[in-house]
Design a protein around this nucleic acid. Structure first.
Lengths: 384, 384
DNA sequence: GGTTTTTGTTCGCCTCAAGAACTTAACAGC
DNA sequence: GCTGTTAAGTTCTTGAGGCGAACAAAAACC
């Protein structure tokens, strides 16, 4: 609970108003905003007026809907702040701009050579698209980020890659997060998990990453490296994992597990490709491939059940391969999930949902954490 | 972010002041409170004055400490609100009163016959000690509580015991929580986890219960039944658990696991007694007992490592048998914990701490949730 | 006994949101 | 096409909150 004086109230309510605009799925009218914030029409007028003055919001006449005097829609200011978000994957990257409300404009994308040189590319790209309007940069990275700085991505051979060193400090407040966590955040803010209290999201690719979502916030943990659910021994694999632990859940779920089964080489690239082929074979009816998919789905469900005992989520959403598994073997996943649930919980299992944000999940999540850095009393207050 | 008007500011700051008094480890002076809340001395005077008026706080002259005009200590009002907290265990119960700041007064305790009739006893006890000052009741129960109402305690044969039915509704705002969760909350508020951001607590008794603590709040999950970490298959046990799942961590950790090893009957009572005897034997140097303790400790550490990968806690505290295991085999627990951690995390393992609140942890935690129900703008505002 | 330090107290100032009363701009019905 | 209804916008007054400045009080220090 922060200190607050009557003067701080204005900024407090202005932030609430901006958040309402940002979070609103559709266009938000001034009258509706007043209702949502539970302030009078007069107060809303004052708030909006000052935000317009500060170049943070713009009013445009709204199409009349029904009786009554028509109102205005609250839209981003043409000169207002934007955030850039980048998604750095194992072999490619992408940079996009996001306005208030979440409108995306792709800026640039590229491949990279699997060395930290990608961050130099990114830096160049941000500089190339620099604007005075740029207010924050959000980064999604396919690996754990310790204390917001140090990357440890074993399959790329990145051992203690220092983000600060590679990115420099010429950007306004850069914030970074794990891709799976940010994908989950995107689902919680703009996808299928919107409005949930306690939820989990899992992105299934060559392995599993995930996050715990509480009231629309993705939990980072003490050092920003929470969410490695894939590296818990939930399904009894006897193998040793690249992470240094034996028996990880990820050894049984994801495209690496599929590839390994057919003698393919597990790995982020080849494993993923082979895994996709196996998925296609299974869909085409090949029995062996189908069995592999079954085992993958079963292991997924079993692990989710175990986690549900600990977390008691209202809903669990999946992305990546998880969406395919859900499409092909939902019954199996749900059966195994139930088998992993303590008996008394089986009458109220968590809802199991396919993510709706899509491939851009990490990017959208990165935009959200960047906006979170902006939509604070401090930043808005300084902007006037 | 709640709506706030200038009139709400008063209550907001009054709640902050009461919380500061409640959370302060030692006596809190008015001057120090003003600094902590970051309000002026004049404002603090006004806040305290109104709270004294409302019978929520009392000022007593403070012993002068160093230079300067002496100030007053903020202490509970002699007619102010108290909360009652009850701890209902498998065969006994206890009721106590807690004042603002956490001062405890035991009211009554008793055995029970392992049927829900205990709640009638409890109801009688609360009625017997009824006061106009009673503002809320907190309940710690040794089992999961679904949606704050339905108990499912398999080893007692309680299947869908409805708390509301057994307790009636003649109490002011009763809140209930799982005992392990509340023990963790007590550590986070008044024990070894005070001040942590992301932390976990585990109470090890005949099995394992726990909770995730974020900024001093114990996470309840969607239905209030989060925290059953003991019912995840973290250590590869082949056995079937009473909870209905195979391979639970709890099958390898806790007094039941010790008892089972020596052919004893697992169970909350006998298992616990036998487990304690084995612990004593191990301390006395008996080799077989020592091995059993070793295995228990190793399984504990291994599970904690797995969970730390997912949660990234800054600290993990233990209570119950966990304190003994930590005392006897900390090295083993830490080694196994490290082995379960992803390699890159091993340089920053979570701090592993023995809880300091003690046996009354669940009771103190129950008092905390009861006070949480009181120290809100709504309640304080209504009280004037 | 004077000085320093810390705190309590009083008073004027500025800001905020609320509420009431009024105005404006659409739609609906005849 | 006119009038009534409905929902918003606008204006002004009002009460409350916290702050800062100036002053008073009560202890310790020298």
């Amino acid at each position: 609970m922060p200190t607050m004086t009557s003067a701080d109230l204005r900024v407090h309510n202005q932030v609430r108003l901006l958040r309402a605009v940002h979070d609103s799925p559709g266009p938000l009218t001034r009258a509706e905003a007043a209702r949502r914030l539970d302030v009078g029409r007069n107060t809303a007028a004052a708030l909006v007026g000052e935000l317009e003055e500060a170049g943070l919001l713009h009013e445009v006449p709204a199409a009349a809907s029904g009786r009554g005097r028509p109102t205005t829609n609250l839209v981003p200011h043409s000169g207002g702040p934007v955030v850039y978000a980048a998604d750095v994957r194992e072999d490619s990257w992408m940079l996009a701009a996001f306005g208030l409300g979440g409108a995306m404009t792709e800026l640039e994308r590229g491949e990279h050579d699997r060395t930290p040189a990608v961050f130099a590319d990114l830096r160049r790209a941000v500089a190339a698209h620099a604007t005075a309007r740029l207010a924050a940069v959000g980064l999604a990275i396919a690996g754990p980020i310790l204390d917001g700085r140090l990357l440890h991505i074993s399959h790329l051979g990145w051992d203690e890659v220092d983000l600060d060193r590679h990115l420099g400090s010429d950007w306004p407040s850069a914030v970074a997060g794990n891709d799976a966590r940010l994908a989950g955040l995107a689902e919680a803010r703009r996808g299928v998990l919107r409005g949930t209290g306690t939820a989990m999201h899992f992105h299934i690719d060559f392995d599993i990453g995930g996050t715990l979502l509480l009231d629309g916030r993705a939990q980072p943990g003490a050092h920003g490296i929470a969410g490695e659910f894939g590296h818990m021994p939930l399904t009894g694999s006897p193998l040793e994992c690249m992470c240094g632990v034996r028996g990880c859940w990820s050894l049984d779920v994801g495209t690496n597990a599929l590839a390994r089964r057919f003698g393919g080489e597990p790995g982020y690239g080849s494993g993923r490709r082979l895994g996709r082929e196996i998925l296609a074979s299974a869909e085409a009816g090949y029995v062996e491939a189908g069995r592999a998919i079954d085992d993958n789905a079963a292991a997924l469900g079993r692990g989710l059940g175990a986690l549900a005992n600990a977390v008691d989520p209202e809903a669990i959403s999946l992305s990546g391969l998880g969406i395919d598994l859900l499409r092909l073997r939902r019954d199996l996943i749900e059966a195994e999930l139930a088998a992993g649930l303590m008996a008394f919980r089986r009458s109220r299992p968590p809802r199991l949902l396919a993510g709706t944000v899509g491939e851009m999940g990490p990017l959208r999540g990165a935009a959200e954490i960047a906006w979170d850095a902006i939509l604070t009393p401090e930043w808005v207050g300084a902007r006037l």
